[in-house]
Design a protein around this nucleic acid. Structure first.
Length: 295
DNA sequence: AGGTGTCAAGCGTCC
DNA sequence: GGACGCTTGACACCT
């Protein structure tokens, strides 16, 4: 069981997602941003190693505008050495990496242009993981997408479009249950048809499920991960008290977390903590898991 | 230096 | 048909 947090670290005073406005694009600006982002990413990974946090979600903003037509800068060549060094660090220390292309990445959109842009965005993410030299346990998670007034047709379109994606994308893509539209059961159906593993989001499952309890849900999702995919990935967060359902808590509630871990029984999986205070809660969760000998 | 409006990208909801 | 939330950080421009 590895534990981690997404994208940013609030303790070390750098950001791996420096960007700039599209209208101020230049190759120099892009190169400078990528250089600083990679430097910061390396620092975050060192911080994580020191704290025993071996799971990390890398930001999609590492290379700004990477899949945008404006980007004519050959960043994979220019930064090959930096990527390779970070990748070697990750592998040497037994770390695991995920990425989460954001809400604009929709492979089931009825609009072919949106599919093409999404495909380019996924290709960028896969390129980053490949440049790092990571094996196929490093995944990219997306949601099933929009419903567009016809859920069955939209799921069919997801599966058809999946087959059209480059193998470099397909082999790293996993589908995550969302909080409104596509539940765990929907994602499992996609998995049966495409072979793509299902990433289980426990918080989304609380808001949108077909009644499976946590133990059953974890086992169903875990069964979709093959040997080369690695352990099941789980997104975990908790409800912010007094806020609308779905709002992420400020810091981890260790009692709820303990209950979740207990529900998993002997099943092993890796946990991404989607909690606002990021590494602080991840460190607390790690200490808790160490205390109960799960790490 | 600090404050604020805005930012590549889409969907769904609400009016 | 348009505004807004999602979820949130960081830029860019303002004072």
């Amino acid at each position: 069981m590895k534990i981690g947090y997404p994208c940013l670290n609030r303790s070390i005073g750098c950001t791996p997602s420096r960007t700039f406005r599209l209208r101020s694009y230049s190759a120099e600006r892009l190169a400078e941003s990528v250089r600083q982002n990679l430097d910061c990413l390396a620092r975050i990974l060192q911080f994580n190693l020191a704290g025993g946090l071996l799971f990390f979600r890398m930001t999609s903003d590492l290379v700004p505008f990477a899949s945008h037509p404006v980007c004519d800068f050959p960043w994979p060549d220019k930064f090959a050495a930096e990527f390779a060094a970070i990748g070697a660090f990750i592998q040497r220390n037994g770390m695991r990496i995920s990425m989460h292309p954001d809400q604009f990445t929709l492979i089931n959109s009825p609009d072919p242009a949106i599919f093409e842009r999404s495909s380019a965005e996924l290709a960028y993410h896969a390129r980053v993981l490949d440049l790092l030299g990571l094996d196929l346990t490093a995944k990219m998670q997306i949601h099933a997408g929009g419903v567009y007034g016809d859920k069955k047709a939209s799921l069919d379109r997801f599966c058809a479009r999946f087959e059209r994606l480059d193998v470099k994308i397909r082999r790293r893509l996993v589908v995550e249950n969302d909080d409104r539209q596509y539940s765990l059961a929907d994602c499992l159906a996609v998995s049966r048809r495409t072979g793509t593993p299902v990433l289980f989001d426990s918080f989304h499952h609380q808001l949108n499920s077909n009644g499976e309890d946590t133990a059953a849900a974890l086992r169903l999702a875990a069964a979709t991960w093959g040997k080369s995919d690695g352990l099941l990935m789980v997104d975990y967060s908790s409800q912010k008290k007094g806020e609308r359902p779905g709002a992420h808590a400020e810091s981890i509630d260790l009692r709820s977390f303990a209950g979740f871990i207990a529900a998993g029984g002997a099943l092993d999986f890796d946990i991404m903590l989607e909690i606002k205070d990021k590494e602080k809660s991840a460190l607390r969760a790690r200490r808790f898991l160490a205390k109960i000998s799960r790490i």
